[in-house]
Protein backbone atom coordinates (compact mmCIF):
# COMPACT_ATOMS: atom_id res chain seq x y z
CA UNK A 1 0.00 0.00 0.00
CA UNK A 2 2.84 2.32 0.84
CA UNK A 3 4.57 1.48 -2.42
CA UNK A 4 1.43 2.31 -4.28
CA UNK A 5 1.01 5.73 -2.73
CA UNK A 6 4.68 6.46 -3.33
CA UNK A 7 4.29 5.51 -6.93
CA UNK A 8 1.26 7.70 -7.35
CA UNK A 9 3.20 10.56 -5.84
CA UNK A 10 6.06 10.00 -8.23
CA UNK A 11 3.79 10.48 -11.23
CA UNK A 12 3.09 14.07 -10.26
CA UNK A 13 5.21 16.76 -11.88
CA UNK A 14 8.39 17.55 -9.97
CA UNK A 15 8.56 20.77 -7.93
CA UNK A 16 9.24 23.81 -10.07
CA UNK A 17 12.73 25.19 -9.66
CA UNK A 18 11.77 28.70 -10.75
CA UNK A 19 12.23 31.49 -8.22
CA UNK A 20 9.14 32.25 -6.14
CA UNK A 21 6.94 34.84 -7.76
CA UNK A 22 6.65 37.98 -5.69
CA UNK A 23 3.11 38.61 -4.50
CA UNK A 24 2.08 42.17 -3.84
CA UNK A 25 1.66 42.44 -0.06
CA UNK A 26 -1.79 44.01 -0.30
CA UNK A 27 -3.34 40.82 -1.72
CA UNK A 28 -5.76 39.44 0.91
CA UNK A 29 -4.77 35.86 0.20
CA UNK A 30 -1.76 34.68 -1.76
CA UNK A 31 -1.09 30.96 -2.02
CA UNK A 32 2.08 29.57 -3.52
CA UNK A 33 3.05 26.00 -4.30
CA UNK A 34 0.63 24.67 -1.68
CA UNK A 35 0.44 20.89 -1.37
CA UNK A 36 -1.53 19.10 1.35
CA UNK A 37 -1.55 15.35 1.88
CA UNK A 38 -3.55 13.07 4.20
CA UNK A 39 -1.81 9.79 5.00
CA UNK A 40 0.65 10.48 2.16
CA UNK A 41 -2.15 10.85 -0.38
CA UNK A 42 -2.20 14.35 -1.84
CA UNK A 43 -5.50 16.22 -1.46
CA UNK A 44 -4.30 19.52 -2.84
CA UNK A 45 -1.49 19.75 -5.34
CA UNK A 46 0.61 22.76 -6.23
CA UNK A 47 -2.02 25.39 -5.57
CA UNK A 48 -1.13 28.82 -6.90
CA UNK A 49 -3.66 31.57 -6.16
CA UNK A 50 -3.91 35.31 -5.79
CA UNK A 51 -7.25 36.46 -4.44
CA UNK A 52 -7.96 40.13 -5.24
CA UNK A 53 -9.24 42.48 -2.56
CA UNK A 54 -12.94 43.19 -2.11
CA UNK A 55 -14.15 40.30 -4.23
CA UNK A 56 -16.83 37.73 -3.52
CA UNK A 57 -14.98 34.59 -4.43
CA UNK A 58 -16.70 31.26 -5.00
CA UNK A 59 -14.69 28.05 -4.64
CA UNK A 60 -16.36 25.40 -6.74
CA UNK A 61 -15.49 21.80 -7.43
CA UNK A 62 -16.74 18.23 -7.04
CA UNK A 63 -16.88 16.34 -3.73
CA UNK A 64 -13.42 15.51 -2.47
CA UNK A 65 -11.84 18.26 -4.55
CA UNK A 66 -10.14 19.66 -1.45
CA UNK A 67 -12.24 22.82 -1.06
CA UNK A 68 -12.57 22.61 2.74
CA UNK A 69 -8.98 21.45 2.98
CA UNK A 70 -7.86 24.57 1.13
CA UNK A 71 -9.54 26.82 3.71
CA UNK A 72 -8.21 24.79 6.63
CA UNK A 73 -4.66 24.82 5.25
CA UNK A 74 -4.83 28.63 4.96
CA UNK A 75 -5.85 28.75 8.64
CA UNK A 76 -3.05 26.41 9.80
CA UNK A 77 -5.70 23.92 10.95
CA UNK A 78 -4.02 21.17 8.97
CA UNK A 79 -0.32 20.93 8.14
CA UNK A 80 0.92 21.91 4.72
CA UNK A 81 3.17 19.40 2.99
CA UNK A 82 4.78 22.24 1.08
CA UNK A 83 4.23 25.84 0.06
CA UNK A 84 2.63 28.71 1.91
CA UNK A 85 -0.49 30.83 2.20
CA UNK A 86 -0.03 34.49 3.10
CA UNK A 87 -2.72 36.84 4.33
CA UNK A 88 -1.96 40.43 3.38
CA UNK A 89 1.64 39.34 2.96
CA UNK A 90 1.94 37.67 6.35
CA UNK A 91 1.76 34.05 7.50
CA UNK A 92 -1.49 33.16 9.28
CA UNK A 93 0.02 33.29 12.77
CA UNK A 94 0.75 36.99 12.31
CA UNK A 95 -2.53 37.78 10.56
CA UNK A 96 -5.11 36.13 12.84
CA UNK A 97 -6.84 39.46 13.41
CA UNK A 98 -7.45 39.82 9.66
CA UNK A 99 -9.25 36.51 9.12
CA UNK A 100 -12.62 35.09 10.16
CA UNK A 101 -13.61 31.49 9.51
CA UNK A 102 -17.10 30.06 9.16
CA UNK A 103 -16.76 26.27 9.44
CA UNK A 104 -19.30 23.78 8.17
CA UNK A 105 -22.34 23.73 10.42
CA UNK A 106 -21.91 20.04 11.30
CA UNK A 107 -18.43 20.68 12.70
CA UNK A 108 -19.80 21.50 16.17
CA UNK A 109 -22.25 19.95 18.62
CA UNK A 110 -25.38 22.11 18.57
CA UNK A 111 -26.62 20.52 21.82
CA UNK A 112 -23.83 22.34 23.66
CA UNK A 113 -25.28 24.35 26.59
CA UNK A 114 -24.64 27.88 25.28
CA UNK A 115 -26.91 30.59 23.89
CA UNK A 116 -26.75 32.13 20.44
CA UNK A 117 -25.26 35.27 21.99
CA UNK A 118 -22.56 33.22 23.76
CA UNK A 119 -21.48 31.69 20.46
CA UNK A 120 -21.35 35.07 18.70
CA UNK A 121 -19.35 36.53 21.59
CA UNK A 122 -16.68 33.87 20.92
CA UNK A 123 -15.77 35.98 17.91
CA UNK A 124 -14.37 38.53 20.38
CA UNK A 125 -12.15 36.09 22.27
CA UNK A 126 -8.98 36.86 20.30
CA UNK A 127 -9.38 40.58 21.03
CA UNK A 128 -9.91 39.79 24.70
CA UNK A 129 -6.98 37.39 24.94
CA UNK A 130 -6.42 34.82 27.69
CA UNK A 131 -8.24 35.13 31.03
CA UNK A 132 -10.29 38.26 30.25
CA UNK A 133 -14.06 37.92 30.38
CA UNK A 134 -16.46 39.12 27.71
CA UNK A 135 -17.07 42.81 28.42
CA UNK A 136 -20.40 44.66 28.28
CA UNK A 137 -19.31 46.44 25.09
CA UNK A 138 -18.45 43.15 23.41
CA UNK A 139 -21.82 41.69 24.46
CA UNK A 140 -23.61 44.68 22.97
CA UNK A 141 -21.57 44.26 19.82
CA UNK A 142 -22.47 40.56 19.65
CA UNK A 143 -26.14 41.50 19.83
CA UNK A 144 -25.60 43.97 17.02
CA UNK A 145 -23.98 41.23 14.91
CA UNK A 146 -27.03 39.01 15.51
CA UNK A 147 -29.19 41.93 14.43
CA UNK A 148 -27.24 42.16 11.17
CA UNK A 149 -28.17 38.57 10.34
CA UNK A 150 -31.74 39.19 11.48
CA UNK A 151 -32.01 36.98 14.56
CA UNK A 152 -31.26 39.29 17.49
CA UNK A 153 -34.61 38.24 19.01
CA UNK A 154 -33.14 34.74 19.45
CA UNK A 155 -30.03 35.90 21.34
CA UNK A 156 -30.86 34.08 24.58
CA UNK A 157 -32.00 30.84 22.96
CA UNK A 158 -29.91 27.79 23.50
CA UNK A 159 -28.43 26.86 20.14
CA UNK A 160 -30.17 23.47 19.87
CA UNK A 161 -33.47 25.37 19.87
CA UNK A 162 -32.58 27.09 16.58
CA UNK A 163 -33.37 25.91 13.07
CA UNK A 164 -30.55 24.96 10.70
CA UNK A 165 -30.74 28.30 8.93
CA UNK A 166 -30.69 30.18 12.23
CA UNK A 167 -27.66 28.19 13.36
CA UNK A 168 -25.87 29.13 10.15
CA UNK A 169 -26.70 32.79 10.82
CA UNK A 170 -25.22 32.47 14.31
CA UNK A 171 -21.99 31.28 12.72
CA UNK A 172 -22.02 34.22 10.31
CA UNK A 173 -22.67 36.67 13.15
CA UNK A 174 -19.72 35.15 15.00
CA UNK A 175 -17.52 35.80 11.95
CA UNK A 176 -18.79 39.40 11.77
CA UNK A 177 -17.87 39.75 15.42
CA UNK A 178 -14.24 39.08 14.50
CA UNK A 179 -14.08 42.32 12.47
CA UNK A 180 -11.92 40.68 9.84
CA UNK A 181 -10.78 41.73 6.38
CA UNK A 182 -10.86 38.24 4.89
CA UNK A 183 -13.76 35.82 5.46
CA UNK A 184 -13.33 32.11 4.75
CA UNK A 185 -16.69 30.35 4.65
CA UNK A 186 -17.19 26.61 4.26
CA UNK A 187 -20.53 25.92 2.56
CA UNK A 188 -22.64 28.55 4.33
CA UNK A 189 -25.48 27.82 1.90
CA UNK A 190 -25.64 24.10 2.64
CA UNK A 191 -29.15 23.00 3.72
CA UNK A 192 -30.49 26.45 4.66
CA UNK A 193 -33.95 27.85 4.00
CA UNK A 194 -34.57 30.39 1.24
CA UNK A 195 -34.81 33.31 3.68
CA UNK A 196 -31.44 32.47 5.19
CA UNK A 197 -29.89 32.09 1.76
CA UNK A 198 -31.11 35.59 0.87
CA UNK A 199 -29.84 36.99 4.17
CA UNK A 200 -26.41 35.44 3.59
CA UNK A 201 -26.19 36.83 0.05
CA UNK A 202 -27.16 40.30 1.28
CA UNK A 203 -24.53 40.07 3.99
CA UNK A 204 -21.84 38.96 1.53
CA UNK A 205 -22.66 41.92 -0.73
CA UNK A 206 -22.47 44.29 2.22
CA UNK A 207 -19.08 42.93 3.25
CA UNK A 208 -17.84 43.22 -0.30
CA UNK A 209 -19.07 46.85 -0.49
CA UNK A 210 -17.00 47.56 2.61
CA UNK A 211 -13.92 46.30 0.76
CA UNK A 212 -13.78 42.97 2.61
CA UNK A 213 -12.89 39.81 0.76
CA UNK A 214 -14.97 36.65 1.07
CA UNK A 215 -13.95 33.15 0.01
CA UNK A 216 -16.98 30.90 -0.08
CA UNK A 217 -17.03 27.16 -0.72
CA UNK A 218 -20.11 26.67 -2.86
CA UNK A 219 -21.98 23.70 -4.30
CA UNK A 220 -24.85 25.04 -6.35
CA UNK A 221 -23.65 25.67 -9.90
CA UNK A 222 -26.94 27.36 -10.83
CA UNK A 223 -26.26 30.34 -8.56
CA UNK A 224 -22.51 30.70 -9.02
CA UNK A 225 -22.53 33.63 -11.44
CA UNK A 226 -25.27 35.52 -9.61
CA UNK A 227 -23.62 35.27 -6.18
CA UNK A 228 -19.93 35.62 -6.97
CA UNK A 229 -17.78 37.98 -8.98
CA UNK A 230 -14.61 35.90 -8.81
CA UNK A 231 -14.29 32.16 -9.17
CA UNK A 232 -11.85 29.41 -8.27
CA UNK A 233 -12.52 26.06 -9.93
CA UNK A 234 -10.83 23.40 -7.87
CA UNK A 235 -10.25 19.71 -8.27
CA UNK A 236 -7.13 18.89 -6.30
CA UNK A 237 -5.44 21.53 -8.46
CA UNK A 238 -6.68 24.94 -9.49
CA UNK A 239 -8.37 24.22 -12.82
CA UNK A 240 -9.17 27.86 -13.49
CA UNK A 241 -9.53 31.11 -11.59
CA UNK A 242 -10.56 34.61 -12.51
CA UNK A 243 -13.62 36.82 -12.97
CA UNK A 244 -16.78 34.75 -12.67
CA UNK A 245 -18.20 35.52 -16.14
CA UNK A 246 -15.06 34.53 -18.02
CA UNK A 247 -14.13 31.60 -15.78
CA UNK A 248 -17.52 29.93 -15.53
CA UNK A 249 -17.32 28.29 -18.96
CA UNK A 250 -18.46 24.94 -20.20
CA UNK A 251 -14.90 23.93 -20.97
CA UNK A 252 -13.59 24.83 -17.51
CA UNK A 253 -16.46 23.05 -15.80
CA UNK A 254 -15.87 20.00 -17.93
CA UNK A 255 -12.26 20.02 -16.81
CA UNK A 256 -13.24 20.44 -13.16
CA UNK A 257 -16.01 17.90 -12.93
CA UNK A 258 -14.96 15.49 -15.67
CA UNK A 259 -17.64 12.98 -16.52
CA UNK A 260 -19.75 13.99 -13.54
CA UNK A 261 -20.70 17.26 -15.20
CA UNK A 262 -23.18 15.81 -17.64
CA UNK A 263 -25.63 15.08 -14.88
CA UNK A 264 -25.15 18.49 -13.29
CA UNK A 265 -25.48 20.16 -16.64
CA UNK A 266 -28.77 18.49 -17.26
CA UNK A 267 -29.99 19.61 -13.88
CA UNK A 268 -28.88 23.20 -14.52
CA UNK A 269 -30.47 23.10 -17.95
CA UNK A 270 -33.74 21.88 -16.49
CA UNK A 271 -33.58 24.62 -13.88
CA UNK A 272 -32.99 27.29 -16.52
CA UNK A 273 -36.05 26.08 -18.39
CA UNK A 274 -38.28 26.26 -15.36
CA UNK A 275 -37.05 29.78 -14.49
CA UNK A 276 -37.52 31.22 -17.99
Amino acid sequence: MHNESLKSQATFPPKSTEPRPEHPPEVPLAIHDLTVAYHRKPVLWDIELNIPEGKLVGIVGPNGAGKSTLLKACLDLIPKTSGWAHIYGKPYKKARHLVAYVPQRESVDWDFPVSALDVVAMGAYRRLGWFRRVTKEESAKALHCLEQVGIDHLADRQISQLSGGQQQRVFLARALMQDAELYLMDEPFAAVDAATEEAIVALLRKLSDQGKTCLVVHHDLATVTTYFDWLVLLNMRVVADGPAETTFTRENLQKTYGGKLNLLEKAAEALRHTIN
Binding site: R96, V119, R133
Partner: peptide, 22 residues
Amino acid sequence: LVLFKEFKLGAFDSALADTLGF
Protein backbone atom coordinates in the same frame (compact mmCIF):
# COMPACT_ATOMS: atom_id res chain seq x y z
CA LEU B 1 -13.08 30.03 36.81
CA VAL B 2 -9.95 31.66 35.42
CA LEU B 3 -10.06 29.82 32.10
CA PHE B 4 -13.85 29.52 31.82
CA LYS B 5 -14.06 31.27 28.47
CA GLU B 6 -11.16 29.23 27.06
CA PHE B 7 -12.57 25.90 28.32
CA LYS B 8 -15.95 26.74 26.84
CA LEU B 9 -14.44 27.63 23.47
CA GLY B 10 -12.17 24.57 23.40
CA ALA B 11 -15.02 22.21 24.20
CA PHE B 12 -17.50 23.79 21.77
CA ASP B 13 -15.32 24.50 18.74
CA SER B 14 -11.68 23.46 18.97
CA ALA B 15 -10.98 24.59 15.39
CA LEU B 16 -12.14 28.11 16.24
CA ALA B 17 -10.00 28.01 19.38
CA ASP B 18 -6.96 27.24 17.24
CA THR B 19 -7.69 29.89 14.63
CA LEU B 20 -8.13 32.49 17.38
CA GLY B 21 -4.80 31.55 18.93
CA PHE B 22 -6.04 29.53 21.92
